[in-house]
Design a protein around this nucleic acid. Structure first.
Lengths: 264, 264
DNA sequence: ATCAACCGTTCAGAAGACCGAATGACGTTG
DNA sequence: CAACGTCATTCGGTCTTCTGAACGGTTGAT
């Protein structure tokens, strides 16, 4: 009976309701420097105001959310800062990547990223900004659909076609006119990436931005990859191949560091 | 009856139990790249294993915690990354501080921090690393007792003695042999800092590290401050005054940026 | 001034989580 | 090899939280 009710609502019975709601609040407020009222959040989350009220009181008491001066809009609190850096510090790949990313950013002069595959998304773990004024926007912790990024395609290209079909959410979400949403096109791009060793994104998540990425061989769970992005105006095909060589080299050197760590 | 039971346990009745536990788990795992088993966490938190089990399942399903390969040790998950950067992006002071901190780090060549007062603690919001090999350890999101840091003393010096007595946890925690724990000594240091406009820490939280800090006038709630730290070997009294001038200038220029933002 | 629309907040009934003991699955040690 | 230590996991009764409607406050428009 209970399982029927749970199934009817599309919820897994194994979830603790208020625990899930706490996390949902954090994700909502973290999504975009958001400042939301209790009622707004209750609306988005489809949760009664009164229930959310008690949860927000708990979070506020512990400084995980702040209430603005008017006492009516919530934003993330100071405690929220801790988890981000703590995740990165506890992670071997992210810890070792720093100098490698620095070197790659220095060599190319463009924005450089370390990303990780999480389900159907790519998450940015670290970045180095381009030294040019015109550069792409990104932030550590942000997510983009894997199929629309060079990082994601580099990581997906490590799996065979059947596995890729399994892992992605079909139909594929479209972010720009150039996003690849056709299954066959994507799979052939992945096959090509696998052969040549690097993947490319050509305005598929942000118009006018091209990006080149290489996966790190040592598959940490989902897998990691590093990339280099630039506006189309600074990244023609010849330049992309040149950048791809630099990224490949960086990926290789980071892979070596990781293997050494694993063996020690 | 219920309030009696709640009071007996030292808990506020207004807290949602599992919500508080989720946050406690995040704080525990964020404390220090920690990898803990369910049983260990249950022990530390004084919570039944079975209750925590359900909560951790929920958190794991949503990628807020990861289970290592052995399936027995928990660490922070990928979702934990989001909140940290989101807090900083939504914050005016942290967003505007970047260039100012860059300039100060460039000018002094030493580690530079932006900190915020949260209760009795100072939280690091941003940092710039020294270019020297020998430098202090710190991380965004980390906390230190306010009374043992230059940042904290700079912010506390904005309040009068009575207010300071209220805000701090007595007796004061000792971190090093040089930590100031005597109330009168601390208050006189604060009075001195108020007069000259900057505060100092002399090995009071980390041995061999000296630090100079200046509060930002515009009191954002608890208050913010910026600091510059260096080993004693590179920071004698004369150098400290020199650095203090640079930090004061930086604080002033950041304060100006903030006022302009507030007026617009 | 009045009304309407929002906000957060409260309360008692209903639903679900919490608890503690017992279980099963390892890996380790005597 | 067996006995132990540690680990996550299950299960039903009890207690807590969740819920939805009603309340009082403030803001902005009519």
């Amino acid at each position: 009976m209970e399982s029927v009710a749970a199934a009817a609502r599309g919820r897994k019975p194994e979830e603790v309701k208020s625990a899930a709601r706490v996390l949902e609040v954090l994700e909502l407020l973290g999504a975009e420097g958001a400042r939301l009222s209790l009622a707004e959040m209750a609306g988005v989350m489809a949760v009664p105001k009164s229930s959310l009220h008690a949860i927000l009181r708990t979070m506020e008491a512990r400084h995980w959310v702040d209430l603005d001066a008017s006492g009516t809009r919530y934003s993330l609190g100071l405690k929220a800062l801790l988890t981000g850096t703590a995740y990165l510090e506890g992670d071997d790949v992210a810890s070792l990547a720093g100098p490698v990313l620095d070197a790659l950013a220095e060599e190319t002069g463009e924005s450089v990223h370390l990303g990780r595959l999480d389900g159907t998304d790519v998450v940015y773990l670290a970045k180095r900004e381009s030294r040019h004024a015109l550069r792409m926007y990104s932030a550590v912790g942000r997510r983009l659909p894997a199929h629309a990024t060079a990082l994601g395609k580099a990581m997906l290209s490590q799996y065979d076609a059947a596995e890729v079909r399994m892992r992605l959410n079909w139909p594929l979400e479209r972010l720009t006119p150039d996003t690849v949403t056709d299954p066959e096109s994507l799979l052939s791009q992945l096959a090509e990436a696998r052969l040549r060793g690097w993947a490319m994104d050509d305005g598929e998540n942000s118009p006018e931005i091209r990006c080149v990425a290489v996966a790190l061989g040592t598959g940490h769970g989902g897998g990691d990859a590093i990339s280099c992005s630039a506006p189309k105006s600074r990244m023609d095909d010849a330049r992309a191949e040149e950048v791809a060589r630099a990224v490949t080299e960086a990926a290789h050197s980071l892979g070596t560091l990781l293997k050494r760590l694993g063996q020690h």
